[in-house]
Write a protein that binds this DNA or RNA. Structure first.
Lengths: 161, 161
DNA sequence: GTGATTGCAAATCGTTTGCACCATT
DNA sequence: AATGGTGCAAACGATTTGCAATCAC
């Protein structure tokens, strides 16, 4: 973790930005919650535990800065809030997401599933791909298992499309 | 076009909703601009030309209703506004988008590029896919061609439709 | 009449901005 | 003192909501 903070610090310095205590606290929160998809408000509340005097605006400014530096990716699952996702170091593509329409959970897929698709798009549509966003909406494995259990126990029928 | 309106009308009636003049005008605007990705505000301004007395809130309510009925898809390209895209009749998947980072244009890909990928996701992650969102960010063919031209005869002025 | 639907204005919510203050140089 | 960074509150823009008036059956 310290290494990654150090790396980010250097990245900031290289563009003559500073790693202030507030920024460091924000980055730490992101690192500690790498698996989640925190909104700015979420980050704010978590950072406040470490640095109670921080303002929401500073969190927004920091997240925007980290987004410009490509340390985090800003994503939007259509629920009206932006979420910030730490970019994997060395990852050459943006990971994919599985959004559960039942429990709201968001899981990540690190594998690159789009290699072939991108080749097709670039040649058939003459489009130079720089980035992609792929999100599947459906039912996660936890909810599927839960439903299966519910069926076994109650024998009730479920509606399936 | 009249057939599609009629179909939507029946769909509304089947859930005891009415196709009011305001709703019809909104649907017509969506049908007439099927290729665009209009924001609620865009739709509002266009509907106002046909039905000047309509209110923005009604447009929002209509779009939300149409979204529930799966007549339109609500999409978000990360620019802070929701856009509404008419769902193709008979389409078994949500189409993909090519967002140009230079001119801001949004092109559609109707072909289903994700068939194989979805099979992998469903079996490897045990996730029941109901819908997907795939957007590529990059440079569109128009901008690529423009850049090529600019390189060939440097100094020539640009003109884009 | 009853209930759905509308237009308007006010309210809400996430996000951004203006500005005075603070820290580091 | 110059610069960049901060916190706060106000401003903002997109969307939602409360409500009285209106419409369709």
């Amino acid at each position: 973790m310290e290494q990654r903070i150090d790396r980010i610090k250097k990245q900031l310095h290289s563009q003559s930005y500073k790693l202030t205590p507030q920024r460091e606290a924000t980055v730490r929160v992101l690192l500690e919650n790498e698996k989640d998809h925190l909104s700015a408000e979420d980050v704010y509340l978590l950072v406040k535990e470490k640095a109670p005097e921080i303002g929401l605006a500073t969190v927004y400014r920091t997240l925007e800065l980290l987004n410009e530096l490509e340390v985090v990716d800003k994503i939007n699952f259509g629920d009206g809030v932006s979420r910030y996702d730490l970019r994997k170091e060395g990852a050459d593509h943006f990971h994919h997401h599985l959004v559960c329409i039942e429990c709201g959970s968001v899981d990540e897929i690190q594998e690159d599933l789009l290699g072939d698709v991108e080749k097709v798009v670039e040649s058939n549509w003459n489009f130079k791909i720089k980035d992609h966003r792929l999100t599947f909406h459906g039912v996660c494995h936890r909810c599927l298992e839960q439903e299966k259990k519910d069926e076994e126990h109650t024998g009730k029928e479920t509606n399936e499309a």
